[in-house]
Design a protein around this nucleic acid. Sequence first.
DNA 1: ATGAAAGCGCTAACAA
DNA 2: TTGTTAGCGCTTTCAT
Lengths: 339, 339
Amino acid sequence: MDPHDVTIKDIASKVGISYATVSRALNGKYGVKADTREKVLKAAKRLGYRPNAIARGLVTRRTMTIGLIVPDIKNPFYPEVAGGVEDAAHEANYGVLLCNSNWREESERQYVSLLLERRVDGIIVAPISNGAEFIDARMRGRTPVVYVSNRPHRTESSYVIIDNARGGFLATRHLLEAGYAPVGFLGSAEGSETGKGRFNGYRRALSRHGQAYDARYVRVGDMMQVSGYRMFREMFDAGDLPRAVFVENDLMALGCIQAARECGLKVPEDVAIVGFDDIPFASFPEVQLTTVRQPTYDMGRTAVEILLESIGHGKERVEDRAKPRQVVLKPQLVVRRTT
Amino acid sequence: MDPHDVTIKDIASKVGISYATVSRALNGKYGVKADTREKVLKAAKRLGYRPNAIARGLVTRRTMTIGLIVPDIKNPFYPEVAGGVEDAAHEANYGVLLCNSNWREESERQYVSLLLERRVDGIIVAPISNGAEFIDARMRGRTPVVYVSNRPHRTESSYVIIDNARGGFLATRHLLEAGYAPVGFLGSAEGSETGKGRFNGYRRALSRHGQAYDARYVRVGDMMQVSGYRMFREMFDAGDLPRAVFVENDLMALGCIQAARECGLKVPEDVAIVGFDDIPFASFPEVQLTTVRQPTYDMGRTAVEILLESIGHGKERVEDRAKPRQVVLKPQLVVRRTT
DNA sequence: ATGAAAGCGCTAACAA
DNA sequence: TTGTTAGCGCTTTCAT
């Protein structure tokens, strides 16, 4: 018989007991004779029994699965976060449903629905932008969310992020103190708190150092490598290239390095560059990108911890569950050779 | 009322009809008065109804979800494959459950169980090694599998891989023809077909060019960057460093470049390096790694196509479903500046 | 066009 | 210690 079709009823009739007892035996519940349990276990094994998580989820209302939505699995930053999430979830016996929204709000929305329909026990999302506020609305009540790395502008939900303004400040100040000026900013198009925060830090550092803000030195892209490349070239071609650029993420910074090279510019001799994230590749010898480090793996782990708290095993009523926790971690400047 | 608790029964009583009709209306089935359908849809929306995929899956025996197991989400090769899988799955209205086994066979096994218990409609797996043969055994019958990028030694299941021996041959021949000799091989420890294939290609090229095989120039690691770094240093420290190395994947090749640099060696002047995969960073200007390209994204897409064929909507009996398809794609040598 | 009812595989009272 | 039974939310005959 096909293993998929083996149910506890088959085991029950095989052993000659009721299927309720089989269920108990399989789940290690009290009140089953050791002898019976053994017989059940043996029969289950022989028949190739495989519990049906679907059926179980229907009655227990718990699926032991959490969803994780990231905007770009190809950006090494997110696999790093995902690693933390997976490890922590695994330790707690949860499976992880990883979804990649590809920077499309539409996809993000669809994935939220998908996960909700699959009745995951909770969702961790690295949201694209403020559009994500709709997530909060949908969650009202049952399924806990925790945002990671980015968050909607106003939210009552839990989140684990870093102090982006601080990060932007550190990066820009470093550039300025090293004597690079003017300093430009290459970020993502509107919306994301992440971008806003880093931009604000940038502006604050500027004014602290008596530097005028100049819109010519600011461009927006889409967080992908080619975008960094294009923005840089655009500036260069327009004759607006500043002495240094602070770039919203490492991937775009890498794009800038690429562009700089093609423009015949040396880094940092002609143009200094600092990124954000500290993806593994940033420390590669031939790259040595100065950047702002985020504690990626730990952010993932922490997000899971908080999520599990809010799932609160067995706490039916919302009031009984843990209050949202909002964690803001410290970014860290890592100076290497592009500045 | 909490949106999660709204069921078709609630809609039914709201509209004043039976819940069977609600189900029909919601699923766009025939035999529902347009007027009724409209009322149902409106009520569903107002109540914030959200179908319970768990319950539906229990009766339909289809979850519209496929599982994808990869060995290392941090290796940019796999997100690339995952991208193809996700896009194709999405287009067919399937969700993807992405799992990362972290190069641990134990995890791989657990994830297979997890996915099977969740009753995914099919599984795509980039297996770690031959241990994966157990997957075949479990699949006997119901849940279709397709292997991608690597496969168990003998399998009846579908797979989408490249001709690894050919890839290894191309890489090594290129090195030899460029006058680099002796050529070493840095691979992964036993087991994987991928490694064996590439190694065989390496040996074939060696003998074609009248080069003796020398075990001193061959090392095994674990497919991660540090591993490449260590193997290289080890060879160097032991005085066994060949004139060139063919490395089983780009990540380890990157590790080699790192090590070479630390050993005061210039690439390719002192030691030439060729990798495998052509991950995005390989083409970065400061890296320019010569490598063997795999059609990652397309492999992912193709795997989904094949999987969906074998899932074969509505074909209950195994015999009615598509036969396994085994696809072997061509690798492509990309010559850059490390050779 | 709609309703009634069975049942998917399982857990969890409640009985015995 | 074990059995009986009632659902979980939904789809799908089979009636009407």
